[in-house]
Design a protein around this nucleic acid. Sequence first.
DNA 1: GAATACTTGTTACTGTCCAC
DNA 2: GTGGACAGTAACAAGTATTC
Length: 237
Amino acid sequence: MTEKDAGAPGLARLAALIADETRAACLLALLDGRAWTAGELARHAGVAASTVSEHLGKLVAGGLLAEERQGRHRYVRLADERVAHLVEDLAAQVAPEAAARRPHTLRASGAGSAMARGRTCYDHLAGRLGIAVTDALTGRGLLRQDTGFALTDAGLGWFRAAGIALTPTGRRPLARACLDWTERRPHLAGVAGAALCRHALDSGWCVRIGSERAVKVTPAGEAALSGLLGIDPVALR
DNA sequence: GAATACTTGTTACTGTCCAC
DNA sequence: GTGGACAGTAACAAGTATTC
C-alpha cells in the first residue's frame, strides 16, 4: 500500500457506514442540527426501533454521531459540523438523480419545494434563502468568495450592527462555504452562518415548517432581510 | 406517596437476502 | 454452502403519567 493509500481503510469504513439506506436516512434527518431519539428516527426511516438502535450504535462507534442519554431517552446528533458537511456534500452529488425521481404525492412535492425554498443545513440557512443571504452579503462587500469564504471588516461591522454575536467555538472557521444540494452553489456556513440562522429563528425572521428542516420566511423576516441586506422579498417566496 | 399502566429504548434471537 | 448485513419479533428494563 502506498503512502497515498494509507487512508484507504478508514475511507472504506466511513463509506460502508454511510452506504446503507436506513443509516443515510438517519444522517439526513440529523442534518437539521437537532438531537433526535431512536424512536423518532425509526419512524422517520420507516423501520423498527430495534433496527435503528443497532444502526445508531454503529454510527456512534464510527464517530459520525454523538449520543447523550437523558433518563430513558437516548438522544443522538451529528458528531460535529464536518460530518454535517460530509453528508450535505454527498447529498449534493446525488441530487440530480434524486430530482429525477418525481415525488409520489402532492404532499411530498410540497415538502420538496419548501425544502428548496428555505431550510436549515445543520445549523445554518440553506436553499434559496441561504443563497439569497450569501449573495446579498457578497454583493454588499460584507463577504468575500474569491479565496474561500471570509467576512470583510465591513462584514464584521454589519454583524455587530445587526446585533448578531459571532462567538468563536473551537477551530470552527468564522465563515466557510457549504455546497447547497438544491441550488448547486455554496452558501454561508461556519460561525457566521450559524449565528445568522440562530438570530433569524430567535427573532422570528423565519419559522420552522413542522418538524422538518424546511423554514419559512415571515413578513417580519422579509422586512428585516430587505432592510438589512436589500433582499427582494419576492425572491424568498 | 404508592401502585399500576403506558411509553420508549435495548438486547437476544431468528429469518431473509446476497455476495463469495 | 458459508458468512455478513439487515430487519423483524419478543422479552425485558427503565422512566413517565395516571389513578387512588
